[in-house]
Nucleic acid binder design. Sequence first.
DNA 1: GTGCCTACTTTCTTTTGGAAAGTATAGGGA
DNA 2: TCCCTATACTTTCCAAAAGAAAGTAGGCAC
Lengths: 130, 130
Amino acid sequence: MPTPQKIAYDPNVPVDPRVETLVNELIGRVADKWTLLVLEELEDHGTCRFTELSRRVPGISQKMLTQTLRAMERDGLVVRTVHPVVPPKVEYCLTDLGHSLGEAFCGVWVWAEANLERVARARMAFDARD
Amino acid sequence: MPTPQKIAYDPNVPVDPRVETLVNELIGRVADKWTLLVLEELEDHGTCRFTELSRRVPGISQKMLTQTLRAMERDGLVVRTVHPVVPPKVEYCLTDLGHSLGEAFCGVWVWAEANLERVARARMAFDARD
DNA sequence: GTGCCTACTTTCTTTTGGAAAGTATAGGGA
DNA sequence: TCCCTATACTTTCCAAAAGAAAGTAGGCAC
């Protein structure tokens, strides 16, 4: 292990550009509307079934829910458990990694809630120009 | 002001569903790949010109850069300054609000850098199944 | 005149997303 | 027996969004 793990970002330590590319790709994958909403739902309600999620996540289509859950499973964020019964029962829950991502995004939820009004005012001001 | 501003999320305090809808919408707007990458660039390099940004943000097209910057401007995240010269010179920089969003996303960057390998391993394991 | 510079805009094509219908399977009711 | 229900998808079709590339404006150097 050549370097100890960093805790916070330090702009004075240049990052290996290959690492930066990988980080950008991962951020692009993970910073997705549906991934975020599913993550939040699983954080708040723990283990969920497919239909439960599709009811809880506002506006998601079944297609996007399947895609999002598969991608999250592949990335190690959720575990998918199939119970071989009829009608089918499939449960999804967060892994430790998924939970840690949820915590990392926590600041963004807090920010959004705290700044709703500021953004609304900025939009009104912008739209009123000209 | 009916309630004091919350600092952290408390699952025991139910949130007004209308507020939750607005927060979801705002998250959906702001948690966008290009918004994040532009935000990072402006955090790291301060004021930037259009072409500079399009060079620095990997893979963005001019069209998406314009769209992203306009949306960020409308939301009060960046300021756009036009210098009436020829050839044109337009500078973009973060507002306080934009900077605070950057800080809120900081946890996600740290998470991504810290967990690159774990995600890579999860993907390999997933792809090796069957 | 021709070309150059920047910050876009426009046009066209490809990719992605959403809505709705279809699939498989077993049990229960008429 | 036939039909209906329930769940977790998959498929199909169409609209919306994103990407690539070319076009625009307008002063200045040559």
